[in-house]
Structure formats: C-alpha cells, structure tokens
C-alpha cells in the first residue's frame, strides 16, 4: 500500500488525563508513524508514561480521542486493545513472579484452545495442539535473547535486566502491530542493550510500529526515526533529533537539562 494511502496506525487527538486536579497529559495530539520507531522524550514528570498508559488503556483518557487502525478505541478496555495488537510494556518490573520464565511468555499467547474454562476442562489432549507451537515460538524468543537456560526458573528470581527482557518477549508473543515501550533499556546490562537495539531494528524491518519512552538520548538518536518531546503534559516539539537540537526552546526545556 502506498504510504500516502496508509494513514498512521495510531493517532491521538487532543488527549487529556487529569488526576486529582493535576493535568498529567494536557492536550496531546500525535500521529505515530507506521513502521517506524518513534521516541518519546522529555523531563521527569512530563507525562510520557501517563500518555503511554492512556494509549494502552491502562488509564482512561479524561478527554480526547485515540484512533487505532481506523477505529476509535478511546473507550475500549486495555485487554481488548492488547488483543488487537496494541501492546505496552511497563516502566517498573511487571513480571508474573511465580510463573516460570517460559510460562511468562506462554501466558501472553493470544490464541490457545486451553485458555478458557471449557477448553481447560476438555483436557490436555484438546489444547496441546495449540500449546506445542507456542512453546516452540517462546523457546525461539528465549534463544534469541540468550535466556534459554532460564526457561524453568521463576521470573521473580531474575535480575532487573532479565525481567525487562521477559517483558519485551512477552509482548512479542502477542504478535503486536504497535508496541508501546516504557523505558525498555533502563536497568539493562549494556551488552543486552545492544541486543534489544538490534532486535527492535529487526522488528521495524518487519513492519512493526514502535513508540518508546526513553531517557538515554544517545540511544534515542541511534534508534529512533523521529522524536516527540513532551514537557508539562504537552508536546513541545517533534522531528528528528538533529532538527530538535536546533530549536532553542526545546534545548532549554530538556536537552541540556
């Protein structure tokens, strides 16, 4: 499909999020470029994570419209957005601690005959046909991220960086179309940062749309096709890092501190 006829998969129009009289997100409108990696940067308390949560449906929008794949999803619950391929990760570790690493991935699979009461009651013979390919898929991801040896360990016993990897792999098990990443590299060992970096680029080549909150500007510069800058709940600029560095007010607001 030509780019001109291919509107953005995810569009936010004048999105607000008020809480206890605070405007965490104060009228944000963006179109997330399809098939690109977009960085979302800004100082602490700019509302980046809140905005991501509103896009994913974890928090309801107070005002505004969110359109995903041509459909208004503003009132759609978070789980339904995830099932349609709009998947987020979290800033804080959010692993299922007393599930094994492999189970953390398997549980995210969107289609499994055994994932309903009736399917479960019919027994293993009924759902194993779905389960086995998922196990293979999950093991493929574990291998790719160098965590094969950990598959049977409880996720709660992993290091901070490993938990972050688990979360990214878990999101990928859903076969997302848009991935919303909340500081995916924080607390991750530098060698694994490289690995995540490569993998995200590979996902982009496969056509995945990514919006990521990130603090490390050199990572953003290397990885993101374009960048949106937020401060005090508003978008104060967007473009490539190079063009943003030329805008004085943005540099003042954020880039140099």
């Amino acid at each position: 499909m030509p780019a001109a006829l291919n509107p953005s998969l995810l569009v936010a129009e004048d999105v607000h999020r008020h809480f206890e009289g605070m405007h965490a997100v104060d009228g944000v409108s963006i179109e997330v470029p399809t098939g690109k990696i977009t960085g979302l940067i800004g100082p602490n308390g700019a509302g980046k994570s809140t905005f991501l949560a509103v896009l994913a449906g974890t928090l309801p929008a107070s005002e505004g419209t969110i359109v995903y794949d041509g459909q208004d999803i503003t009132r759609m619950p978070a789980y339904a957005r995830a099932r349609r391929g709009l998947v987020r990760t979290f800033q804080l570790p959010s692993e299922f601690a007393r599930l094994t690493v492999l189970e953390n991935l398997l549980v995210a699979a969107p289609k499994n005959r055994g994932d309903s009461l009736w399917g479960a009651l019919r027994g293993k013979g009924y759902w194993m046909v779905d389960e086995q390919p998922l196990i293979d898929q999950a093991r493929g991801l574990l291998k790719r991220f160098g965590m094969t040896a950990k598959e049977s360990d409880y996720a709660g016993t992993m290091s901070g960086g490993q938990k972050r990897l688990i979360e990214i792999m878990r999101a990928l098990m859903l076969k997302p179309r848009v991935l919303l990443l909340d500081e995916p590299m924080s607390g991750v060992h530098p060698s694994i940062v490289e690995e995540i970096h490569h993998y995200l680029q590979e996902l982009r080549r496969e056509g995945l749309t990514i919006l990521m909150v990130e603090h490390e500007l050199h990572l953003v510069e290397r990885l993101c096709d374009s960048v949106v800058v937020m401060a005090q709940g508003k978008v104060i600029g967007s473009g490539t890092m190079a063009t943003l560095r030329q805008q004085k007010e943005i540099v003042d607001a954020y880039l140099v501190g």
Partner: peptide
C-alpha cells in the same frame, strides 16, 4: 484440569500482576 491448563496459567498470571495481565490481553 483447570490448574494445569493455559486457563489456569492465565488465572495465576492475574493473581501475580493484574495490570500486567490486562496488558497482555487478559480480561480480569
């Protein structure tokens, strides 16, 4: 059968972290 099935796994995931379970498409 419930506990050992993928359905049971979803239940346990919800128990461990409800918001994260919602984020991977589970309706709590």
């Amino acid at each position: 059968r419930i506990v050992n099935s993928p359905f049971g796994r979803s239940l346990r995931a919800m128990r461990e972290h409800e918001v994260a379970a919602t984020a991977i498409g589970k309706n709590p």
